[in-house]
């Protein structure tokens, strides 16, 4: 039933894009952790989480994202989020994730604001 997560990493300027496909649930933990570990190994300081509009994210997936955002904060990394449907933008606002990662309407808008400087 579960569509396994698949995360492709892409570096655009000084921002690393986490292109997340498939469901984001508690079962996504190894995928997210692996991607984040790779990013850490590469010395990444800016991370943009890109979701597909029709993605399924449940509370287990949100808890995982919160764990990753805790790590980004600890490691002084900047985090952004893009690609969310209006519903999940509302959910992310509702649970307070937006205090730790800004939501952008598009990859271009995110890169425009996150690229360069600190």
């Amino acid at each position: 039933m579960e569509q396994p997560s698949e995360i492709a990493l892409e570096t655009i300027g000084d921002v690393t894009l986490f292109d997340i496909r498939g469901d984001v649930t508690a079962l996504s933990e190894p995928f997210l952790n692996d991607a984040y570990t790779k990013a850490i190994d590469q010395g990444v300081v800016k991370i943009l989480f890109k979701f597909k509009k029709d993605i399924y994210i449940n509370s287990g997936g949100i808890a995982l994202l919160i764990q990753i955002l805790a790590e980004t904060k600890k490691n002084n990394q900047q985090a952004g989020i893009t690609g969310l449907s209006d519903h999940f933008k509302k959910i992310f606002n509702m649970v307070g994730i937006t205090k730790f990662a800004k939501i952008y309407d598009s990859v271009e808008a995110a890169l425009g604001q996150m690229s360069g400087g600190d």
Binding site: S59, A63, I66, L69, M94, V95, F100
Partner: peptide, 21 residues
Amino acid sequence: VMRRIENLEPPKGLGTYLIKK
């Protein structure tokens, strides 16, 4: 639930929190 999220701790009860909202 919100306090745990603000402290970036694993949020127990997130599912019931979302349902209520």
